[in-house]
Structures are given as C-alpha cells and as structure tokens.
C-alpha cells in the first residue's frame, strides 16, 4: 500500500497527488511512468511521474479524471492508501545534446511535459514551453513551467488567457522566426500531437511525442499498447513511451485508444448507480 501524503486540485478534474514510494523515487528519470491500481478491484492504469524527490522518497502524479479509475483516484484524500504502484517503467527521455528545445503540452498533457521541461532546463538547454487548454482555469503548472523555461507561452481555445487559439499557432510562429530549434516535444491529446508532427515535419525539426496507450501489465507482457512506428510494431510500455513523432501511425493509435469506449461507459454508469 502506498500512502497519499498530499493532494492538490490543480484545475477542475486535474489533481496532483504526492505519494510515498521510495523505490520508485530513487530510480525515476524524466519520461518514466508508473502503473497503479487504486484498489483490489481496480484496473492497472499508466500515469506519468510528474515529479520525484529522491531524498524524501516521494513521487508526484498528476492526472485528469477521464474514466472510472481516474475519477476514483480523484476522490482519494491525504492519508488514503493506493493499493499498488509499480515503476519506474518505460524508457526515460534522452536529454543530452540539444541546445534549443520547444516543449508543447495540451491539457493534462502539460503534467507529463513538466518533468521534461525541468530536465532539459537543468541540462542547460534553452527551453521554450507552450501550454494550452480549452479555457483559463484548465491551465496548470504555470508557475512551475515559468521557473524552468526561458520563455513560456500560453494559449486558450476561448481566448480567456494568453493567445486566443492553439498551441500549434505559437509553434508555427516560432519556427517561422527562429531557425535554430533542435527539438520539439509534444504531449497531449492525439489530434494535437498529430498536428504538431505534421507541422514540424515540414520544417524538418526532430520531434518527440509521448504516447498514452491502453496498457495492462506495462512490462511488455501483453502487447495491448502496441503501436506502429516507422512501419514496425512497438510496445509503448517497453519501447516507449516516447517515439519519433514523424514515424508514429496516429490514425491507428486513435482507433486503439477508443477500443473500450462502450465498456468504459458501462463502468461509469454502474458507478453512478452506486453513488445514488
């Protein structure tokens, strides 16, 4: 069992939990993820480690409530126990060798982006961060990103904060004006990552996306997370989660992410019944 030490609601439906997990805190690097099971009957869900403190043995996870399990996790409080957490899993991201990096986070994807922003910044690269959401109160981690970015841009779909429009507008503008960008990292909804990939391909800039596929074990055992990258089958859990954006088959990825939509709705409806 893993104890929740702190809980912070970052935005409506986006929550940060600090959890005691010394073995995981000891080993995590930017890009690694964990798999957790809220309770005895829970699913195994993958979540990125947003932050870690090797001294205190505490990890932070940030998640958006999108399905039954994340909603249940969102209901948990300081002092509650999470049944299982395993990690760090996946490959960490290679931070070395880049001088100027643009990192884009869409919605809760910003939580996954944050450790990479910090990693590149601490590595000495020039870091430009772009975060976007539907509306102002869904913008998260602004302070943290500010701290570890040379420049920070914000975009909202409704124009309530920062640029009125998409994160990709800002990226396009940057690529037009600055020709020394080494690397683009994009994490967020699949359509956003695909849009970024299409755009950077034109400019010939290396681009990395981090995929959030369906997983069961997270150790390469089941293959539920398989994606096509450069025409080859890859397992997101052990070969990823980060891949070359220009090689990823996003159409297939989107299709696979929707596989359990009916079942997800059923569990949700059952849970609503139980709440009544």
């Amino acid at each position: 069992m893993y104890e929740i030490l702190e809980k912070e609601v970052l935005a409506p439906t986006i929550t940060k939990l600090k959890v005691k997990a010394p073995m995981i805190a000891e080993k995590t690097k930017p890009g690694n993820f964990i798999i957790l099971r809220v309770d005895e009957k829970g699913e195994r869900i993958p979540l990125t480690v947003a932050d870690y403190d090797r001294e205190t043995g505490v990890i932070s996870i940030i998640f958006q409530e999108v399905g039954y399990s994340t909603k249940l996790l969102g209901k948990m409080d300081k002092g509650d126990q999470i049944q299982d957490i395993v990690g760090p899993l996946g490959h960490h991201i290679d931070l070395e060798g880049y001088e100027k990096v643009v990192l884009l986070g869409g919605g809760s994807g910003t939580a996954l982006l944050y450790p990479k922003v910090r990693g590149f910044y601490e590595q000495g690269a020039e870091v430009i961060s772009i975060t976007g959401a539907r509306t102002k109160n869904l913008i998260i981690l602004e302070e943290e990103l500010e701290k570890y970015s040379d420049r920070l841009f914000i975009a909202t779909d409704d124009g309530s904060y920062g640029h009125h429009g998409y994160v990709t507008d800002i990226l396009k503008d940057l690529m037009e004006k600055e020709d020394d960008i080494d690397l683009v990292v994009a994490i967020g909804p699949v359509p956003m990552m695909k849009a970024v990939a299409d755009m950077t391909k034109e400019y010939g800039i290396k681009t990395i996306v981090s995929l959030n596929t369906i997983m069961v074990d997270g150790t390469g055992m089941c293959g539920a997370c398989r994606v096509t990258v450069g025409g080859e089958r890859k397992f997101t859990c052990v070969d990823g989660p980060a891949f070359d954006a220009h090689q990823v088959d996003f159409e297939e990825l989107m299709n696979r992410l929707n596989f359990y939509q009916n079942e997800e709705d059923l569990v949700h409806d059952t849970a609503v019944e139980e709440d009544k």
């Binding site: 699913e43 399990s69 055992m221 089941c222 293959g223 596989f259 079942e263 569990v267």
Partner: peptide
C-alpha cells in the same frame, strides 16, 4: 481492435478478473 495476444486476453480475464466485469474494472 479485437486482436489480442493470448497473454493480454488471459491476463485480463485471470489476473484482472475481467470475467467479473464490471464488479472488477478491467474489461
């Protein structure tokens, strides 16, 4: 969608108890 490795199919059912879905949450 609908293609499983036997590992995934059996893990969902046996380890995650998908045969008791939706009581157990793995479909």
């Amino acid at each position: 969608n609908g293609v499983y490795s036997a590992n995934e199919f059996l893990t969902r059912v046996n380890l995650m108890k998908a045969f008791k879905y939706p009581e157990y949450k793995t479909p």
